[in-house]
Design a protein around this nucleic acid. Structure first.
Length: 421
RNA sequence: GGAGAGGUGCGAGAGUGGUUGAAUCGACCGGUCUCGAAAACCGGAAUAGCCGCAAGGUUAUCGAGGGUUCGAAUCCCUCCCUCUCCGCCA
């Protein structure tokens, strides 16, 4: 959420930002409530000041054995008015708060204005799209023939979108996880393995509830939420904490399974490994000094890109336009890997700077080294990387005319085999 | 599931009705000492809202909500959370 004062002082910026994201908000209502709130606070505080003063006098009078009855009676009306005002203020603040949650983060000036994915800007392209003299197969044909991913039994046991990885497929999955984690560690991230269900407070902290509940599997009975991404537990790791400035930046890399209901997204891009209900992902999360967050976004993006380069998979990087970037981000890059068997770009990473938007809601601050007032940290996260689509692109890119899959060199030490099939 | 203990500032941890916004220690900031640093010593500093150009003033905050009282961290009620022991399970 944004700071109310910031909204007050930058109403046009906030209004235009929301409009660019295609989100309708009502700032006027916020300002009306805020004015009311402040008026009531002023009245209430004055009355309370009076009450405190008088009650000190009462103490003195009683100590001297005098009769404070008259003064106490006089306070009756003050007391009553305070009892009217306080609940009213609380009511207004509750309202105000839920309105504040409807105000989206302001896009960074470098973000292109746009409405649809077509307005995203390709800022980088790496690798050669594969051209072959034999017809390329999509990964679902390859994996089925090789027996490394079993969608049918997954559907039987759990449902569509819950595949089994089998044999070398399972090993490949495990190899990629280890490879990603090792690379992250080498680049300065601390490995962390979080719980994969979280409580309500955590789900609220990163903004999964109240409005993205439909995306999640919920363990109703225990009020627990299965995480849609490691971002949720890892960002909440420091919720309600005051960090030391000298500890910043804090960088974490976490592997978790991720669970997504994907309600309403059936029918498009759902073949094979393109869209699953459960998938593996290594997530990179950063807590940084506000002055460094855009530098950290660039390095985050490069950390993710580096993985695709080591795997030798062609990809491009998109700077997301205002309309396609989401509610909480101020700037976001998507990495898309080229899947030649489907002739499609597949999103494998999304790297975002949230500035103070998440951290304010979670109350994560740091105390500056010079002894000044504590400030809200900036948070960022990005996938590094989401596995299934990497497996999809990898099998399609490294397939042979006979339907085998060559394992890229970077993974050999992890797989202990160099070819599948 | 059964029984008990506890939730206080950045952290540890005192405090059972009236200068307690809160002892003490640590972390932090400033200074003395030093070529420099460490140690030692001295000093500073809670967070948030509101008013104010500022200095400053004022209100709230000791898990959350309510109650008693002129006055509550301190007494009463409800709820939430954590820990320990027992049982069950990995």
């Amino acid at each position: 959420m944004l700071d109310l004062k910031f909204i007050r002082d930058n109403r046009n910026l906030v209004r235009n930002g929301a409009e660019a994201k295609g989100i309708t908000i009502s700032l006027d209502e916020i300002f009306i409530l805020d004015d009311k709130r402040r008026a009531l606070i002023q009245e209430g505080d004055a009355l309370k000041a009076k009450r405190n003063l008088v009650s000190a006098q009462v103490g003195k009078i009683k100590k001297q054995g005098g009769d404070a009855g008259a003064v106490i009676a006089e306070m009756e009306s003050v007391k009553n008015r305070i009892q009217e005002i306080d609940p009213e203020i609380r009511d207004i603040e509750l309202n105000l708060n839920s309105l504040l949650l409807t105000v989206p983060n302001v896009p960074h000036p470098s973000v292109p204005i746009g409405k649809t994915p077509a307005d995203n800007k390709e800022i980088f392209r790496w690798g050669e799209m594969l051209i072959t003299d034999f017809p390329l197969k999509p990964h679902w044909e390859l994996t089925e023939k090789l027996g490394i991913v079993d969608f049918d039994r997954g559907a039987k046991v759990s449902g569509a979108g819950f595949p089994f990885y089998v044999g070398k497929g399972a090993t490949l999955e495990r190899a990629l996880i280890n490879f990603f984690l090792d690379q992250a560690t080498e680049r300065g991230y601390k490995e962390i393995m979080p719980p994969i269900v979280v409580n309500e407070d955590s789900a609220r902290g990163t903004g999964q509830i109240p409005d993205k509940e439909d995306l999640m599997y919920i363990v109703e009975r225990d009020k627990l939420y299965m995480i849609p991404t490691a971002e949720v537990p890892v960002t909440n790791f420091h919720r309600e904490e005051q960090l030391n400035e000298k500890d910043l930046p804090i960088r974490y890399a976490a592997y978790t399974p991720c669970f997504r209901r994907e309600a309403g997204s059936y029918g498009k891009d759902v073949r094979g490994l393109n869209r699953l209900h459960q998938f593996d992902k290594v997530e990179l999360v950063k807590f940084v000094h506000p002055s460094k967050s855009y530098d950290e976004l660039e390095s985050l993006r490069q950390d993710a890109e580096h993985l695709l380069q080591l795997l030798g998979l062609p990809y491009h990087t998109l700077l997301m336009c205002t309309g396609d970037m989401g509610f909480t981000q101020s700037k976001k890059y998507d990495l898309e890997v080229w899947a030649p068997g489907q002739q499609k770009w597949l999103e494998v990473s999304s790297c975002s700077n949230f500035e103070s938007f998440q951290a304010r809601r979670m109350n994560i601050k740091f105390r500056p080294g010079n002894g000044g007032k504590s400030e809200i940290v900036h948070t960022l996260n990005g996938s590094g990387l989401a596995l299934p689509r990497v497996v999809a692109a990898l099998t399609e890119h490294y397939q042979t005319p006979e339907g085998k899959v060559i394992i890229p060199k970077a993974l050999h030490q992890y797989t202990k085999f160099e070819v599948i099939g």
